[in-house]
């Protein structure tokens, strides 16, 4: 029983970690909460579900489609909304609010076109289970864990060892200075949003095959993702994964003591506790300013 709960918590946590990773990366570089990240996740999940239920596209292609759709959405958001707003010298709360408006719009467009009721994948792919260390894990979940860990390693190395990663860190530290030495903020931010959205698309695709989803789940995903990112230390890639696992564990073990409907409230209490007591999270650098 404990092993099974732990396995479920880990699976949920890694999935959240993938969302938090993109979120955290975008926050570190662009210095604002990209709330509409939850929308790209949602769109990724719906693309996968729709393709699987209405066409005979093989799974790999469906995954690719999710990534492309989510990535394109991210690019459009950056070019059509964030970039013009940045040119107007908008502060981070304005970008936050714009992002929130985008989430509301996209969520409702999805609801309008695909229906507001719960959707699942009808063909049960990879639902056979394997036993790992005394817990039942479906093939699909096992694949999800593998893909998440792989993506984590790839993203981490990308940020650590490539020139683009270096540019991102430069912009995170001092955007004006970065511009002065010839780094184009616009290009780098475009890349970051593209990468983050693609990650959200995969996370949505993987989760969409495993669990049910509704258009209104955007806000919930958003806050859980933020909690994971803050707990891990916003801006830190490994922190995001650990934060995701922490949230997953708390969610799944809270069910033992409390009715399931309080799950979300517990997660938000963790968020507020972290914001108050350890705003830099496990790994975050104190770039964050608690006091004015």
């Amino acid at each position: 029983m404990t092993a099974q709960t732990f396995a479920n918590a880990l699976i949920a946590g890694l999935s959240l970690g993938l969302v938090a990773m993109g979120f955290s990366m975008i926050y570190r570089t662009a210095q604002f909460f990209h709330v509409a990240h939850a929308a790209t996740y949602l769109v990724g999940a719906y693309t996968g579900i729709w393709l699987s239920n209405n066409t005979k596209v093989p799974i790999c292609l469906a995954a690719l489609a999710s990534i492309i759709v989510s990535g394109t959405l991210g690019l459009m958001i950056e070019v059509l909304v964030y970039r013009p707003l940045r040119k107007l010298h908008s502060s981070s709360p304005i970008l936050f609010l714009a992002s929130l408006a985008l989430l509301l719009i996209i969520q409702n467009v999805v609801g309008l076109t695909l229906g507001s009721e719960i959707q699942t994948v009808q063909s049960r792919v990879g639902q056979n289970s394997v036993h790992i260390l005394g817990s039942m894990v479906t093939h699909w979940q096992a694949i999800s864990i593998g893909v998440t860990i792989l993506l984590f390693i790839v993203t981490w190395s990308l940020l650590r060892f490539t020139v683009m990663g270096k540019k991102m860190r430069a912009i995170a530290t001092n955007p004006d200075l970065a511009e002065a030495v010839g780094i184009s903020c616009d290009h780098v931010l475009l890349f970051v949003i593209l990468l983050g959205s693609a990650l959200a698309g995969i996370a949505g695709f993987l989760a969409g095959y495993d669990t049910a989803i509704t258009p209104t789940s955007g806000f919930g995903i958003l806050l859980i993702g933020v909690t994971a990112a803050v707990a891990g230390g916003i801006g830190s890639i490994s922190g995001a994964i650990l934060g995701g696992i922490l949230v997953g564990i708390v969610q799944h073990f809270a069910i033992w003591k409390l009715p399931a409907q309080w799950q979300d409230a517990i997660v938000f209490l963790i968020l507020i506790a972290f914001l108050m007591l350890r705003p830099q999270g496990f790994f975050g650098s104190p770039i964050w300013r608690t006091k004015v």
């Binding site: 919930g220 968020l271 914001l275 964050w288 608690t290």
Partner: peptide, 17 residues
């Protein structure tokens, strides 16, 4: 006391709770 965005996120959390 939280700075800009973090205060907004905290009120968001309070709303959800």
């Amino acid at each position: 006391r939280l700075h800009d965005d973090y205060f907004v996120i905290a009120t968001f959390g309070s709303q959800m709770i």
